[in-house]
């Protein structure tokens, strides 16, 4: 007579580790996502930290989700990483801000149907004592040249994000390659970089949206703004279904139509933090 397993019943010794595992299984099943959440079609979008951290997506996505009975999965990373995720087909669309990279992305056939969505601008932040004299600069480029010349501390995103791309453009225009103890590459999101620059009394380049959202948590002030070179347009691109057949192209296009359409533009225009608008919808023909 061969029995698998040990005796049961009143014997009170049995596979007790199994009981722990069973409990874990029960926990796993109990907290499992509801079937409704699993059933809904999911649209996956990679975007920059600025759109999510500012809170814009919290008001922009729910009306779309309700309208089309789907669920948006947002992966908030830098622009560089966002585009990479589109390139590998791990997302269905990308919502980013680095025009030159976006154009390359489309030209290489990774994405289709690029549309301008909205814009805001970059600002140069620094402490009020302004050791490099950025306030007196004639342009954003001049401001960067002054920071480099003074060797004043500058905290860079250093993460290939849209902001980092813009920053590199500005250094290039200023005719300098930032290098030295004064130049710190954080490799983190905008919020962390503002926080680090605050702690270190350094300069940094930030998008206005994130700065406004963080204004209460930093004593850095805007030292330079308004230049054409500080323009920050956001674009949205569907991942090319010819390259990645599994992407939800139809739904992605619906989302693109939604955010660039009447309703989406209204939401973007009305979105504000403490009464201050963070983003401006692009005009149909481009800003």
């Amino acid at each position: 007579m061969r029995q698998q397993g040990t005796n049961k019943g009143d014997d009170r010794i049995s596979g007790i580790p199994a009981r722990g595992v069973l409990l874990l299984l029960a926990l796993a099943i109990w907290v499992a996502p509801g079937s409704a959440a699993l059933a809904a079609e999911r649209l996956r979008m990679s975007t920059t930290t600025s759109t999510e951290n500012s809170g814009l997506l919290r008001v922009l996505l729910p009306p779309f989700e309700a309208k089309f009975g789907c669920k948006m999965d947002v992966i908030a990373v830098g622009t560089g990483k966002s585009l990479k995720l589109g390139e590998t087909g791990d997302v269905d669309l990308v919502f980013v801000h680095a025009r030159s990279l976006e154009d390359k992305f489309v030209a290489a056939g990774f994405g289709v149907n690029r549309r301008d969505v909205m814009y805001n601008d970059f600002v140069i932040l620094g402490s009020t004592d302004d050791p490099a004299g950025v306030r007196g600069a004639g342009s954003a480029t001049d401001a960067f040249a002054r920071i480099a010349a003074a060797g004043a501390r500058f905290v860079s995103r250093g993460d290939e994000s849209g902001t980092h791309q813009k920053e590199k453009e500005l250094w290039k225009a200023a005719g300098t390659t930032p290098r030295g103890k004064w130049y710190l590459e954080a490799g983190q999101g905008m919020g962390e970089v503002i926080r680090m620059a605050t702690e270190m009394r350094g300069y940094t380049l930030a998008d206005r949206g994130t700065y406004i959202a963080y204004r209460k948590k930093t004593d850095l002030v805007i030292l330079r703004q308004g230049d054409k070179g500080l323009w920050n347009p956001y674009g949205i691109i569907a991942v090319n279904p010819a390259r990645h057949p599994h992407v939800k192209y139809g739904l992605a296009i619906k989302f693109i139509e939604f955010v660039t359409g009447e309703e989406g533009r209204g939401i973007i225009a009305n979105f504000n933090v403490d009464g201050e608008p963070l983003f401006f919808p692009s005009s149909r023909e481009g800003p």
């Binding site: 999965d73 947002v74 992966i75 983190q188 999101g189 919020g191 962390e192 926080r195 963080y214």
Partner: peptide, 22 residues
Amino acid sequence: GGNILGSTRTMTTVIALETSKG
């Protein structure tokens, strides 16, 4: 997980996110 709200956002990634937001 990608820290997706309502799907893969765990306690620890929320902490990381909230810290990054200050």
